[in-house]
Design a protein around this nucleic acid. Structure first.
Length: 475
RNA sequence: GCACCCGUAGCUCAAUUGGAUAGAGCACCAGACUACGAAUCUGGGGGUUGGAGGUUCGAGUCCUUCCGGGUGCGCCA
């Protein structure tokens, strides 16, 4: 279906200012599964991560890391005294910066501070600290993603792009198209910021492409907005060779969809946005509330340790991404039918179990390739036909899901398929004639083995799209 | 105030993109284990798809409006 069409799927793209948390998890899983799904449907897919390594939050990260560094070399400075010296205040206080500080202390000793272990001039330490922090944060992000089973093809740097002049070039290009002007925006109705005052900014005519208001590309001091850099980045993705761009974003970026879609249109490209709504994590029936300030946010790593990557991924895909979801930790690890992960895995394990028994009973006829020649006319029972129909609808289900950008459909398909298979299996308990393996009826048995093998293949294939490992046996 | 997302069985969610009688699981009721693994399965009850209009041969799906929940709204990213 997607033959020749090049798709760029961008997802996660978390700011490298700390470890990934649950809020990032859904986007990571949905984006990865969508990319796999598009690949399965025949598109040529690039998986991409956008590193927001420019802007104030990275400066704040550097200052926070520097505080930990001063601590690591044994400063006398109090946290309060330090925070007063930080432009904008000390924003990140998490322990996760301690290893970065230790690495800095190990490499540079006290050289990044004054002899009294106080704050040195920024040109002494800032660049070094920022680069080290960025590098180690991204390494930790990648590590977490690897455990989740996510590996992206391209990691793009916002700063590198901006420093190469991409933002300026993009603005001039749009200016040439008559889409840029200098002007003053109206304050938002009903919720005017306290410090509002009219300022002239460089604006993009987003309203010409369906947005509600024109959007600023330069702040009043002339520096580029995040949006401007992001347009340049989307332009870069298009130029690298992509026919369709897909952004997987968190719900807090909902207000961003129209303007980015509009901007991509202005660049002559196409952007689809998948919005992943909030996930509420339940533990023992109680919602876990995330708060960065209180330090109680759940990291992705915590969740993976507790639930395991397969259950995390499957469970995240049991809901349409634009609907809010509850993630019940207990339910995700439950070994019952209520848990789709288990139910589907169990179906696959049963398939494999039958195939192992069949190989022992019938030998070489069951091996790969041998089943293709088996006459299948004997498969006529209702339960068998239901299963066959389901299997036959697999390619269409993949296409429809890819077209709709809805990877969760694969999870539901597999759940239904597993149900069909379990039903057939259990028919064999009531009616011995429906059992898969019957030593005295080789042809019928092999036809059923072929059906079981096909079921295992489709389950395996669907799980691969979701990034979940099929299991050979439950234990 | 404005924009976007959601509202479907008591609960958690589907519905092949506008198609036939809206489907699953949990919970509830009634059944099935001398097994190719019952960690399962079979059957049953349960619905004015948040409300009201409209488009259509046909609407959970599209349009208008209201109600409720969520997210966001220049010089953060």
């Amino acid at each position: 279906m997607g033959q020749g069409v090049r798709v760029n799927v961008e997802y996660v793209s978390a700011n490298p200012t700390g470890p990934l948390h649950i809020g990032h998890c859904r986007g990571a899983v949905v984006g990865d599964a969508l990319a796999n799904l598009m690949t399965k449907a025949g598109y040529s897919v690039t998986k991409e991560y956008y590193i927001n390594d420019a802007g104030n939050q990275i400066t704040a990260l550097a200052w926070a890391t520097y505080w930990r560094y001063l601590q690591a070399i044994g400063t006398d400075l109090s946290e309060e005294a330090y925070a007063e010296e930080v432009p904008g205040g000390l924003q990140y206080r998490g322990d996760y910066l301690v290893p970065v500080a230790e690495a800095l202390a190990a490499t540079h000793g006290g050289a990044l501070a004054t002899p009294e272990k106080g704050i040195a001039a920024p040109d002494v330490w800032f660049h070094t600290v920022r680069e080290c922090a960025l590098e180690m944060m991204m390494a930790s992000v990648r590590e977490d993603l690897a455990i989740l089973g996510v590996k992206q093809d391209v990691y793009s740097s916002e700063r590198a792009l901006a420093e190469a002049g991409a933002t300026d070039r993009m603005i001039e290009r749009l200016r040439g198209d008559g889409l840029i002007y200098e002007g003053v925006l109206e304050p938002p109705k009903g919720k005017t910021p306290d410090d509002w005052e009219p300022r002239e900014q460089t604006l993009f005519r987003a309203t010409q492409f369906g947005d509600d208001v024109d959007r600023p590309l330069r702040k009043s001091d002339g520096s580029a907005t995040y949006f401007a850099n992001d347009i340049a980045y989307h332009d870069d993705k298009l130029r690298r060779g992509a026919d369709i761009l897909i952004d997987v974003l968190g719900a807090d970026h909902g207000g961003y969809v129209k303007r980015m879609t509009a901007a991509t249109k202005a660049l002559g490209g196409r952007l689809d946005v998948l919005l992943c709504q909030i996930v509420h994590v339940l533990k023992d029936g109680q919602p876990l509330r995330m708060s960065k300030r209180a330090g109680t946010f759940i990291t992705l790593r915590d969740l993976l340790d507790e639930v395991g990557p397969d259950a995390v991924r499957f469970t995240m895909l049991t809901r349409k991404s634009d609907a809010q979801m509850e993630f019940d930790i207990a339910a995700a690890v439950a070994q019952t039918r209520e848990n789709p992960v288990f139910y589907v895995q169990y179906a696959h394990a049963r398939c494999r179990s039958v195939l192992r028994a069949a190989a022992e009973m019938f030998g070489a006829a069951v091996d790969a390739g041998g089943l293709g020649e088996i006459p299948l006319e004997s498969l006529a029972d209702d339960a068998e036909m239901t299963l066959i129909r389901r299997l036959a609808s697999w390619p269409r289900a993949v296409e429809a899901a890819a077209l709709a950008r809805e990877p969760h459909r694969i999870a539901f398909f597999l759940y239904d398929l597993a149900g069909d298979f379990h039903t057939l299996w259990n028919r064999g308990r009531e009616d011995a004639a429906l059992r898969f393996l019957q030593p005295d009826r080789v042809t019928e048995s092999l036809a059923r083995v072929a059906l079981v093998a096909a079921t295992a293949t489709v389950i395996r294939s669907g799980l691969a799209v979701m990034g979940v490992e099929p299991v050979e046996e439950m234990r």
